Simulated assay, not measured.
Amino acid sequence: MNLFARIDNYSRKLTSADARILDYVKGSYPHGVLGPARIIAEKVGVSTATVIRFFDKLGYQSYAQLQDEARSDVSARLSSPLARVHLTGPEVPSAAAILKGTFATDASNLARTYKSNRIADFQKIIQTILHLGDRTLYVMGARNSAPVAQYLHANLSACVPSTVLLAGDDGTLGDELAKVGADDVLFVISIRRYAHNTIQVAKYFKEIGAKVVCITDGKNSPVAQRAETCLFVDLNSLSPFDSFTAAFTLCNAIVGAVVAQRRKEVEKSLLRNQKVSDFLRVFEK
């Protein structure tokens, strides 16, 4: 329930101080609540404690919870880091506050991501990977989503040999797509800002009748509209740059679920990899 839903459901009579706070918040939301509560208090002529109590009456566990919600509301409408620079508020926080706030925000992202996804969708993606047979699993993510795709591919390729990472930015993409068949599967990671070539690849897979599954940030994202099954992530961050913690955690869960069903195959694959690494002396001992 967001701020305005809480206000609509608030049935008790407002005090004059509460009414002034409410008028100010309605007129300045969301930016008006991104700064310290004392700024609101100074603007409307009440104490900071009165401001805190008002949001407590609305059901918020803390003023920080309201701020987290406000950042999420604005962030959802703004796609670029440049547009979100102002979301950290007017005051410069301490390093300690940033450290604590970042961990708290990511913990909240993880909790919301878990709640927003259906177990049935997660299981459907796992079953798709487990029953590839002779088909190929293509993994793709470009620009800001590329590290997540690379991470997912690096781990899945040890579990499912027929896993291919599609390059997002070089001239080989067309050559790779020419090999795709209708029985193959695309696992695409596309998190705002949405890379054009990623959307086009998802469109191509769908047009030839191949299956598309994805990790993205909302049902209205371009790839979500082309995918058969989607998992969604929360991206809130104290900085202008989105947090990908929940995306990497979803990848961990997917790999963990695949490994649980393919332990013997994964053990053999890891053993082969270890022998090659030892021969090439890849890692220091």
Rank of each mutant, 00 (worst) to 15 (best):
F205D: 00
T15Q: 07
Q61T: 08
Y114H: 10
F55I: 02
F241H: 14
L156V: 01
A37W: 11
A195T: 00
I208L: 12
I189R: 12
L165R: 11
M1I: 00
V92N: 15
K100Q: 12
S62R: 03
L270C: 06
V282I: 10
I191H: 13
A257Y: 09
D169W: 14
A154K: 12
E265L: 03
T198F: 10
I119T: 08
K43N: 08
V180Q: 04
L82G: 09
I125V: 06
Q65L: 06
G32R: 04
A246Y: 12
S269A: 14
D184Y: 08
L82V: 11
D217M: 08
Q123V: 05
E176V: 05
L3Q: 02
R193Q: 12
K100N: 13
P93C: 04
S72N: 10
Y60W: 03
C214M: 11
Q200K: 10
E228K: 13
A111Y: 10
K268G: 00
F103K: 11
D8M: 09
V233Q: 06
G59N: 01
A257H: 12
A104W: 05
G35M: 07
K285A: 07
R272K: 14
T48N: 15
H31V: 09
T198G: 14
R272L: 14
C251W: 13
V276N: 01
T136G: 03
A227G: 05
G174D: 08
D121P: 01
L66Y: 01
Y204N: 04
N117Q: 02
S157P: 00
A146S: 14
R281L: 09
A17L: 02
H31K: 13
S72C: 03
G133R: 07
F279A: 12
S75T: 01
S62E: 05
G218R: 06
T249A: 13
K26V: 00
I52M: 09
L132D: 05
L165E: 11
R263Y: 12
R192S: 09
P90F: 03
A37F: 02
E228S: 11
Y151D: 12
D184P: 12
R193Y: 10
F54T: 03
L110D: 06
A202G: 10
T216G: 04
S269Y: 05
D23H: 08
V92L: 15
A195F: 09
V148Q: 14
F283H: 07
L231V: 05
S277V: 03
S94Q: 03
L82C: 01
S79I: 10
L137Q: 11
D121Y: 09
I119E: 15
L78A: 01
A158S: 13
L130E: 11
I254Q: 12
G209C: 07
A49M: 14
